[in-house]
């Protein structure tokens, strides 16, 4: 029997980086899952939570709970949102919330730990800088199997940008290091950081493309 995963694309990917969501759906389908998208979903509540507005974060968290209460797995392309949901949902709701929290997975980690695939059969023939992974992100393990990918390393990812909460711009020094790395692409693990970086690169006039991990894994 095929297992079912429910996409939680996050508000950022939904509105600003839909290609990452579509790619994620494709990779999951190739890995043998039936993929569903619940249109009731909106946001995990993190923008409010990080700004210290717990009340609204909780209300939005409760909405998330209602939207996904009976989902088998909830898979999301954002480490930060996954962490938020895993940690905070239990505070916001009762038993159901605690159980759902345990079924929320960040996309790369889901592939490695639940689906148990590391080689998704992707081919991506470019030299690319890989954005530093946060937390338990398994992106680097998945990328190691991508054919044709030449990884270019950039030392020191300090100041790679933050959107919610107090926010933090991408450091110009980092942008310059990436610009000078000789890579044609940057692969991001996190949509919002990727978008901030994309903007900073464009502003600095570097012709480097930014793509989400899921998009690389979906390419053949």
């Amino acid at each position: 029997m095929t297992k079912r995963v429910s996409l939680f694309v996050t508000c950022v990917v939904d509105q600003l980086l839909p290609s990452a969501g579509l790619a994620m759906a494709e990779v999951l389908a190739r890995a043998g899952y039936e993929v569903e998208f619940r249109p009731a979903q909106t946001c995990c509540g993190r923008p409010a939570y990080e700004a210290g507005c717990r009340e609204q974060a909780q209300l939005v968290g409760e909405h998330f709970l209602r939207s996904f209460a009976d989902a088998e797995y909830v898979v999301t392309p954002s480490t930060a949102c996954a962490t938020m949901l895993r940690k905070r949902l239990p505070e916001f709701g009762g038993l159901a919330a605690r159980e759902l929290a345990g079924r929320v997975w960040e996309f790369s980690r889901f592939l490695v730990e639940v689906a148990r695939v590391e080689d998704v059969g992707a081919r991506f023939e470019h030299a690319a800088v890989v954005q530093e992974a946060e937390g338990l992100n398994c992106g680097p393990r998945l990328l190691a199997h991508v054919k044709g990918l030449e990884q270019v390393s950039v030392s020191d990812w300090a100041g790679s940008g933050k959107l919610w909460g107090r926010g933090e711009p991408v450091s110009p020094a980092l942008v310059n290091r990436i610009g000078a790395s000789g890579a044609s692409h940057v692969i991001g693990m996190e949509a919002e950081r990727l978008l901030l970086l994309r903007r900073a690169l464009e502003k600095a006039g570097h012709a480097i493309e930014t793509v989400h991990l899921a998009e690389v894994l979906a390419s053949r």
């Binding site: 694309v9 939904d14 509105q15 600003l16 839909p18 969501g21 998208f37 249109p39 903007r199 464009e202």
Partner: peptide
């Protein structure tokens, strides 16, 4: 942000 996508994911 440069040109947000015309269509949302949904």
């Amino acid at each position: 942000l440069p040109a947000p996508p015309a269509k949302s994911f949904r």
